[in-house]
């Protein structure tokens, strides 16, 4: 059954599954990176209550399985009257979960910047935000890039968890074809497609890392 004809028959459904995977991936990256930066700024702020709340949030998100969170949002919350459609439930759970990881990474990055950099900015009459933007964040970006990269690769694969709430992603498309046609081929194709996706991500991450190699 490993022939071109069969492959071209199932390819459209796999590709449309891959599109769904990419959508979950893309929106999660955008949402969780933005949320993560703000959470991290909260974590390094001097306002204790905010710190404690975000710390608890991060602990909860990182301390329980993403699969549980996903099931909780889609199957659990409706029992108390909060109903998300499938796709929204997936994005909600993924963004909240990944934001916690990113917040922790950004916190580490922000804390590794010497306080003297802010002081140097200050005696040059620059504002806190000017120093943060022009001096601190570029350094943080360089420092956190490898860890962010790991999470990005993880997310490509984690996105397959949406399977359990019935979303038609790449994995589901493969599984449907495999069950219908009683063959391994779709699984192999699915594996290859994940490899391509992670490969593309790795390529872009390297490019960004290279961009930041002009300083140390």
């Amino acid at each position: 059954m490993f022939n071109i004809q069969y492959i071209s028959e199932i390819l459209p459904s796999l590709l449309s599954g891959a599109m769904m995977t990419l959508q979950v991936f893309g929106w999660t990256i955008v949402g969780s990176l933005i949320l993560g930066v703000f959470l991290a700024l909260g974590l390094v702020s001097k306002f204790k209550p905010l710190q404690v709340i975000i710390d608890a949030y991060v602990w909860l998100m990182r301390g329980t399985p993403l699969l549980l969170q996903l099931i909780f949002v889609f199957y659990g919350l409706p029992t108390i009257g909060i109903v998300f459609p499938r796709y929204e439930a997936a994005l909600f759970a993924f963004i909240l979960n990944y934001a916690a990881y990113f917040a922790e990474i950004f916190r580490g990055g922000l804390q590794s910047i010497d306080k003297g950099q802010y002081e140097a900015g200050r005696v040059l009459q620059m504002t806190y935000w000017q120093t943060t933007k022009k001096v601190v964040l570029p350094q943080v970006a360089k420092i956190v890039l490898p860890s962010i990269g790991n999470e990005v690769i993880n997310l490509v694969k984690d996105s397959s968890l949406v399977y359990v709430i019935g979303i038609g992603d790449l994995l589901r498309a493969g599984n449907v074809a495999a069950a219908r046609d009683v063959t391994l081929v779709p699984f192999i194709l699915v594996g290859i497609m994940y490899l391509v996706l992670t490969g593309i991500c790795t390529f872009f991450l390297r490019r960004v890392e290279k961009h930041y190699s002009y300083f140390k």
Partner: peptide
């Protein structure tokens, strides 16, 4: 403005 040359200089490494 009071200018400062810090003990460890604190140049901005990204610039």
């Amino acid at each position: 403005v009071i200018g400062v040359v810090f003990q460890d200089f604190q140049l901005f490494p990204n610039l």
